[in-house]
Every structure is written in structure tokens, then in C-alpha cells.
């Protein structure tokens, strides 16, 4: 043991330097009835990159997030994941979804299954992992999100923050290439937001590729490589958080920031 026990902290814990393009959206358009929710979206997310989507409600950021694993279909344009275009409905799509983690605003834990079963279900049924191995992995992940002792509870017996951390562990159990977060803290009581953000920060620091829709500007500042500001279905600005928050270029972004940062 010659090294000093404390390594110098990295300057930006979020950036394990972004690599090659992992998620690529080109010319994506989508309507809900007569509402044009996504207008010519071009966005490339690099491996290990953390992209935070912000914008006023109704700007299309959640919809954009959900198109990446095709929970929302698109009308024109293309989406590729690690060079492969998203398949249409069917087994190929299921295989691809297994590579994309998704965390929802309302947690969506399987309410008829215990915490442990929530985490082991997809690895055993989709990846055909053995029961013992899946459970070992699940307990490891539960440890990582700080919920080891809750393995045998049902979701309804946990607080919102705990449920969301289980949901993150459930996604991680599939070893996803990229994680999507659709407003992961919006349904939480204020005192529970940080425990979830902490887990997300540590994921980012470990180099997980993440697309995060959130209203937590603190998280965007500290963990994002890039902030993407959306309004009316369009990407208005996409810049590093320090630049974006210090001097937003567009009026829409300035207006949005003035509304949410002044209290």
C-alpha cells in the first residue's frame, strides 16, 4: 500500500469521457392527433454521455424519451441504437428493449411481486439466467441502491423514493447499454428526491449512458454532459450545463429558466 488512500476527486464526476455515438435520432417527427409533438428532432447521444432533457410541460421531452425504446412509435425519421435501427413490433423489438433501461415517473413496479422478484423476473425470463445467479445479482443491486433489507417486501410497503430505487435496480439487472429516465423524481415527496438523485449521480459517475427528463436543475448542473432544452416539440438548445445555465442563447430558454430558478 504505497498509494495515498484518497485519490484526488475528478474535476467533473459525471464525465467518464463520452465515446462513440450510441443513440442517434435523425429527423424524427410525431403527431398526437393534430398536435405536432416532435418536430424534426436530431439528437446524438454518445456512449457514457449523460443528456438531460428539460423544457416546459408539453414540449415533447417525455415523448422523445419514450421513442428511444419505442414505447412511442414515430412517423418519420430514424432512431438507431448502437448502429441498429429500432425494429418494428415483435421479438426483435423485445430483444432491443432488453438493452435499454427505463425508469418511469410512477415507478411501475410489478405490484403483485416482491422487490426481489421484481428485479429477478426479466433476467430469468428474458435473459434465461439461472434463479440463483439472478438472485445474487439482485441482492448486489439492492445493496447498491441501499435497500438490501427490503428484498421480500411488496412495492406498496415501500416509500416512493424506495420504490424508485428498486425500479432503477430492476433496470440495471438487465445490464442496459443506455438508461432512460422519464421524470424519475416528479412523483416523489421533496425529502425523497435526493436519495433517488444520488443513485442516478453514482450511475453517471460509473459511465452509464443516460437520457434524463427532469425538472431537477441541480442534477442537470452537476451530472449532465449536455443539457437539451426543448420547446413546442423542437430542440432549441443543446449545450454543456455550465454554458446553458450561465447564458442561455434563446428567449424561450431564458424565459423558462427565469420561471423555475427564481424561488
Amino acid at each position: 500500500m504505497t498509494d495515498a488512500p484518497t485519490a484526488p476527486p475528478p474535476t467533473n464526476p459525471a464525465s467518464a469521457a463520452p465515446g462513440d455515438p450510441l443513440v442517434v435520432l435523425k429527423g424524427v417527427n410525431k403527431h398526437f392527433g393534430s398536435l405536432h409533438v416532435l418536430r424534426d428532432i436530431d439528437l446524438t447521444v454518445a456512449r457514457n454521455e449523460v443528456v438531460v432533457l428539460i423544457g416546459p410541460s408539453g414540449s415533447g421531452k417525455s415523448t422523445l424519451c419514450r421513442t428511444v425504446n419505442r414505447l412511442e412509435s414515430i412517423e418519420t425519421g430514424s432512431i438507431t441504437l448502437d448502429g441498429e435501427p429500432l425494429p418494428a413490433e415483435g421479438r426483435a423489438l423485445a430483444r432491443l428493449r432488453a438493452e435499454v433501461g427505463m425508469v418511469f415517473q410512477s415507478f411501475n413496479l410489478f405490484s403483485h411481486k416482491t422487490v426481489l422478484d421484481n428485479i429477478t423476473l426479466a433476467p430469468t425470463k428474458v435473459r434465461k439466467l439461472g434463479r440463483a445467479e439472478a438472485e445474487r445479482r439482485a441482492r448486489e443491486l439492492l445493496g447498491r441502491v441501499g435497500l438490501t433489507e427490503h428484498a421480500h417486501k411488496f412495492p406498496a410497503q415501500l416509500s416512493g423514493g424506495q420504490q424508485q430505487r428498486v425500479a432503477i435496480a430492476r433496470s440495471l439487472a438487465m445490464d442496459p447499454k443506455v438508461m432512460l429516465f422519464d421524470e424519475p423524481t416528479s412523483a416523489l415527496d421533496p425529502e425523497m428526491i435526493n436519495e433517488v438523485l444520488e443513485v442516478m449521480r453514482s450511475l453517471a459517475a460509473d459511465g452509464m449512458t443516460m437520457i434524463v427528463v427532469t425538472h431537477e436543475m441541480g442534477f442537470a448542473r452537476s451530472a449532465a454532459n449536455r443539457v437539451v432544452f426543448m420547446a413546442d416539440g423542437q430542440i432549441v438548445e443543446a449545450r454543456p450545463p455550465a454554458e446553458f445555465f450561465a447564458s442561455p442563447e434563446s428567449d424561450r430558454a431564458r424565459d423558462f429558466l427565469s420561471k423555475i430558478l427564481h424561488h
Binding site: V100, N108, F110
Partner: peptide, 15 residues
């Protein structure tokens, strides 16, 4: 059954 249950299952790669 809330639609989120099915969405979560599909997101995990279930058929």
C-alpha cells in the same frame, strides 16, 4: 391494470 405495468414489462424486453 394500469398501463404502466405493461410498459415496464415491455421495457425490460418481455414479449
Amino acid at each position: 391494470v394500469p398501463t404502466g405495468q405493461g410498459e415496464a414489462a415491455r421495457s425490460l424486453g418481455m414479449t
